[in-house]
Design a binder for these strands. Sequence first.
RNA 1: GCACUCGUAGCUCAAUUGGAUAGAGCGUCUGACUACGGAUCAGAAGGUUAGGGGUUCGACUCCCUUCGAGUGCACCA
Length: 642
Amino acid sequence: MDFIIDAAVKAIKHLYQTDVAPAAIGLQETRKEFDGQITIVTFPFTKFSRKGPEQTGTEIGEYLLNELKEVASFNVVKGFLNISLSDEYWIAQLYNEVLPDTFAVAKPNGQKVMVEYSSPNTNKPLHLGHVRNNLLGFSVAQILAAAGYEVIKTNLVNDRGVHICKSMLAWQKFGNGETPESTGMKGDHLVGKYYVLFEKELRVQLAPVLDRIYEKNDLTLFKEGQKVKIQALLNSIDKLKVKKQATPADKTKAIDELNDKIAADEDKIKEIAKGATQLMIETQQMLQKWEAGDEAVIELWKTMNGWVYAGFAETYKQMGVDFDKFYYESNTYLLGKDIIEEGLDKGVFFKKEDGSVWIDLTADGLDEKLVLRSDGTSVYITQDMGTAQLKYNDYHMDKSIYVVGNEQDYHFKVLFLILNKLGKAGADGLFHLSYGMVDLPSGKMKSREGTVVDADDLMAEMETTAEKLANESGKIEDFPEEEKLKLFHTIGMGALKYFLLKVDPKKRLLFDPSESIDLHGNTGPYIQYTHARIKTVLRRGDYQIDDQIKITVLDALERDVVLLLTQFPDIIQAAAKDFSPALVANYVYELAKTFNKFYDKHSVLKAETETLKQFRLQLSASSAKVISQAMALLGIDVPERM
RNA sequence: GCACUCGUAGCUCAAUUGGAUAGAGCGUCUGACUACGGAUCAGAAGGUUAGGGGUUCGACUCCCUUCGAGUGCACCA
């Protein structure tokens, strides 16, 4: 559409002797209720045209009509200049732009981008939240690649720390030597089972500790600093309770707030108290042994992580996501200390008397932030600084996208700010692709309450739903068994992926496990079905590419389809710019719907003339191609028949 | 308490980044030629865009404010 923008710029120069930037011409698609395909908003030009928006629009419209052979007519409604391009133009677009193999294949733009996603802990299986993360990350990577970037997909595996020691300890204590082989369980689920057992045993051990605190006022289990903290929390709780007593019973909101605060303080006490249980003491000892390189602990750690990786590999395969490079925290958790030195030299960081290192971000509206403990060990953000450096050294990418949940918004804000202040190469290409949590109707998923939706279960359930519907339809009876199974997977995953990706990433997303994901309407299977149906027509229609343009007039529905098809490359660029698979999802749905409208109204194979039939076959083939490509950007397969 | 994010039809989501009469799907109701494949298509009902104020030719979108939901504010990761 650049030629219209250029012409409009010339029109304004010619009519009003004013230079405007091409970007100032607001082109948009004409709304359905008006004639035309392209609309220019003329309000902004009235300043220098010194005429009303209608007259301005009419003058520009007349200029375009005279200058551009592609413009067939125009109309002006208020400040909107609606332009109709000729049918010849749209037909040529289909044959010259959409049909060739080069359509929507972006030239390499010479830029490298890293997309880090998934990043699981190795102590339990993946759940619905991870599914959203994985699908988002994979899809964004696909979109960036389609937009011309060289993409590196990475997975930073959190394979060390207290949480893994918990599973390991519980397995040692209660495992009786169980293995994935001996139990037939998927490795990640087996390890997860022991994580749950650990938490269960921890609750048992925690009860008497809490009892001593609350009932007997006995804090002798704790160190001095902890005693002080607990006492302060107890005092705070007492005060809140007094306040609650004094609050009239009808002020339910105030009472709720007080209850929340009390619960928060009690949780803090619980956290400290956990540390006094035998189980947590042993866990900490195990972690220390791990850090000291104790052979037996390392051996167990390797074995159990190995089980988890085998399980994850299966889940990733099922989900259809993959990675070019794995990073492991066990290799990166000590990184970042050299950057601390660098920051101190540059005066970006400062040291306190106790030796801890900080950065002052108050000028940027944030707080002071610790970057190195007084004992000289790293914190989370130190590691992340180091890992960022490591990744940059490995790949020298222009951009780096972190697909991580929105509860870490603050962390990444700080991290990026620090790297910028340090003047690190690539620091201005950092982006946190923050996404909202997946909520259940009952609220947040909580492993403690057993309300976690397991990724493997969910995928299996989606396939079952697809199988049921496919069998009911009676259309697949003659399919070989193998094709059936593949189809159930394609449809089930299509439904799940589309469901999760069509929503703007940053929004929270509600998922009701009791209602299986829909397969009708605005869904993945609807689009897959559209594709399969087109393919059947093409199989029967003796379709071959023929670039002799023989028809000259388009029906409105045909034009709608062509118009949408030509927008595909722009959609890819927009989605790449915003890192938003939702844009692609909404586009491909719109395309499928528009095609279905056309398909319902007009017959392809029984078109009035042979040339019209050939044209409609080309149109159908192009639509199938774009649907298939767009779905691939979402990581969704489309079947030939279903 | 402070900071950030969000609030659109009964439900789940859109809205070309400030543009026209706010659009889809699900659900509800009514229709579709012996189907180029009915996992489809056509139609009806459903909205004070959480409330109030402001900015301007124009506001779901930007600013202020109130209300509501969520998240974050460790020498944990």
